[in-house]
Every structure is written in structure tokens, then in C-alpha cells.
């Protein structure tokens, strides 16, 4: 006050504030939820916890993990991408159609094409200031229709299986390659975010877009990048689906949209933006997959399965969402 601002040390001793146990716990909640669910399923049917059923579960989860991871970036920016599943379905059709011509390059072509489509949606959202919900809702409808037209509304068989064969391998004989790819994707994107200013920019954009803009963060470019990655992830997920089904189909991934959104929120990422991570979505996707795969295995009647699924999703979000990081819960 009477001393010069730029030279005096802080009048109060600065005590380093470490995160409390409670705060640490909330960041592990998605993993805890996963473990609890696994334990519950095992209790319900001791035969569930076998290597083969776990392997089957993570193999099934791979496309969902990839879809959810990509869309998480958009959610972190405060938007939503509803087009991922439709884009993924479209990409399976593209894959089946392009494979005879492009051969081994098809995978890269698919990822590049879906990335470009994602970017286009991002540009439409940013440039014309249309809410991402609307842009991607429109995109969802458009992509579904295109997929139906170019596939003649039916599955397109993939004859050459060599291009996708590598995804069906097992690392070390047990871990499905598709799941390893999903893990590497999550790790790589998380690492890039952590090691560059991107994470700061994405969080700032998600928490408070106007503050981010006035701080000179490249808000528009960050958003477009998020949509691009989300689109590219839809392409990668499509390749995984094709490797399993040996065909492309205009509706192949359509039933993955809501599970992907569920995976994101079950992981504890705030749907309002800013707070969350790709790791959380990975855990969330595993929870969702375990529910999908596990409930029938342990003998829950299919009529009750949906009720239990819904109830567990809501309960899981109640557990995983760190409300102190979210300003408004809508």
C-alpha cells in the first residue's frame, strides 16, 4: 500500500496449497466407477472376469473410445459434435468403395477426408456463428443421406481384407490391436494438449469464450481444430468397424452416437465445456461398453437392461462430475 508495488515481497507468507484428498479423488472417479462396475459384474456372475470376456469387451470398445475421444475435444471447447456417428457410417461406405482403387492408402485417405469434413463443420460454426449443436445436427442428417445414396442403401462388402487385417491382430496375444490404437490416440492427443498451449486455449474457450478471446487466444482456430480432430477420429473409428465387419454400411455406426456422448459425460467431462479430459472419456467409454456387453452376460433380462443402463449412467455422472469446476449445471 505505502510500499512500492513492484519491489515488496508478499506481506503474507505464501503457503503452497496442494490439492486436497477429496479433489484428488474426484479426478480418479471415472476409474473408480469402472472398477466398481467390474467388481459388481463379477459378483453378479463370477464367470465374467475371464481373459476372453475382457478381451472381447475392450475390442468392442475401441471404436467407441476413438469416437468419444475426438468429440471430447469439441465438448471441452464448449460445443458438441452430433455428427460423429453418421460421419463414421459414411466413412465405412467410403472405405469399402475406395479400397479397390487406393489399396493400402485407403485408411489415410479416409482419415484425411473425414478430418476435412469435420473442419468444414467447424468453419461453418465459427464463420457463420451457428451453434455447433445445429451445424452438426444438420451434418448428421446430410452424412446419413449421402451414405444411403452412394451405398444404394445397403452394405458394401469389403473383399480385400489385407488393408484392415492389422487391426484384428493381438498385441502380445491378448490385447486387441484396435484397442491399442485407441489408447495410443488418447495418449498422443492428451500429450500434445499438455505439452503445448493448446490445453490452455481449449479450456479458456470452453470455460469462457469471451475471456479467451479478449486474452488473445486463437479461439476460432482452436474450435476448427477440435472439429477437425473429431472428424478424423470418426474416420479412424470407421476403419476399425470395417476391420471387424468386413463391409461398409450406411447405418453401421449410427447407434454409437448416444453411447459416445454418454462416455464423455460418464468420464466426468462437463458438457458445458472447459473441464474434462480424453482420459476421462476413455474410462467413460469402457464403463459404457462394460454395461452394454456385461449386463446381458451376467443375465440381466433384456427388458431391464435399458433401465439399469440408464440408471447407472446417471449415477456414474453424479459420481464423476467435479461440480466445483463447473459454473452452471444445465
Amino acid at each position: 500500500m505505502s510500499a512500492p508495488v513492484l519491489t515488496t515481497p508478499a506481506p503474507d507468507a505464501v503457503v503452497p496449497g496442494r490439492p486436497t484428498v477429496g479433489q484428488r479423488l474426484t479426478s480418479f472417479m471415472p476409474v473408480i466407477a469402472l472398477v466398481v462396475l467390474l467388481a459388481a459384474l463379477t459378483v453378479a456372475d463370477p464367470g465374467f472376469l475371464t481373459l476372453s470376456s475382457l478381451t472381447a469387451a475392450v475390442r468392442t470398445s475401441a471404436p467407441l473410445v476413438v469416437l468419444a475421444a475426438g468429440a471430447t475435444l469439441v465438448v471441452l471447447c464448449g460445443g458438441i459434435d452430433l455428427s460423429i456417428a453418421a460421419l463414421c457410417s459414411l466413412a465405412t461406405v467410403f472405405f469399402a468403395l475406395w479400397l479397390p482403387d487406393l489399396g493400402g492408402l485407403t485408411t489415410f485417405a479416409i482419415i484425411a477426408a473425414t478430418g476435412a469434413i469435420g473442419a468444414l463443420q467447424g468453419v461453418a460454426h465459427v464463420l457463420f456463428r451457428i451453434p455447433s449443436f445445429i451445424v452438426t445436427l444438420g451434418g448428421m442428417s446430410i452424412f446419413s443421406a449421402i451414405a444411403l445414396v452412394i451405398s444404394d442403401a445397403g452394405p458394401v462388402r469389403v473383399v480385400d481384407r489385407d488393408a484392415t487385417n492389422w487391426l484384428t491382430l493381438y498385441v502380445g496375444g491378448v490385447v486387441p490391436m484396435a484397442f491399442v490404437v485407441a489408447l495410443v490416440l488418447v495418449a498422443a492427443v492428451s500429450l500434445v494438449l499438455r505439452l503445448t498451449p493448446l490445453e490452455s486455449w481449449i479450456r479458456a474457450t470452453g470455460y469462457s469464450e469471451s475471456a479467451a478471446r479478449l486474452a488473445g487466444a486463437p479461439v476460432d482456430r482452436v474450435k476448427i481444430a477440435a472439429f477437425t480432430v473429431s472428424g478424423a477420429c470418426a474416420g479412424l473409428a470407421a476403419v476399425m468397424l470395417v476391420s471387424r465387419n468386413f463391409s461398409g454400411s450406411p447405418t453401421m455406426a449410427d447407434n454409437l452416437l448416444l453411447p459416445a456422448v454418454a462416455a464423455i459425460v460418464v468420464g466426468g467431462t462437463a458438457i458445458t465445456g472447459g473441464h474434462g479430459s480424453l482420459w476421462r472419456s476413455l474410462a467413460g467409454a469402457l464403463v459404457v461398453t462394460l454395461l452394454r456387453v456385461g449386463l446381458p452376460i451376467v443375465g440381466v433380462p433384456s427388458a431391464y437392461e435399458q433401465i439399469l443402463y440408464g440408471a447407472i449412467i446417471v449415477a456414474a455422472v453424479a459420481l464423476t462430475l467435479d461440480r466445483s469446476k463447473v459454473l452452471i449445471i444445465k
Binding site: R194, L195, T196, P197, S200, R203, A204, Y207, S208, S210, A211, A212, L214, A215, G216, A217, G274, H275, K325, V326, L327
Partner: peptide, 28 residues
């Protein structure tokens, strides 16, 4: 609402604009 990003840390708020001040090349 405009000056700061409330849930972000003091450090991240302080370096939000001048990212180069905490980076070497592109890395934080």
C-alpha cells in the same frame, strides 16, 4: 466474465496471452 477464466489457475490465467513466455518453441 471477460477479464479472467475463473476455474483456471492463477498461473494459466497469467500466461494465457503471452504463451511464448512459458514455452520453448511450441512446447510448454
Amino acid at each position: 466474465t471477460e477479464g479472467m477464466v475463473g476455474p483456471m489457475s492463477v498461473a494459466d490465467n497469467m500466461t494465457l496471452t503471452k504463451q511464448q513466455s512459458r514455452c520453448t518453441g511450441p512446447l510448454v
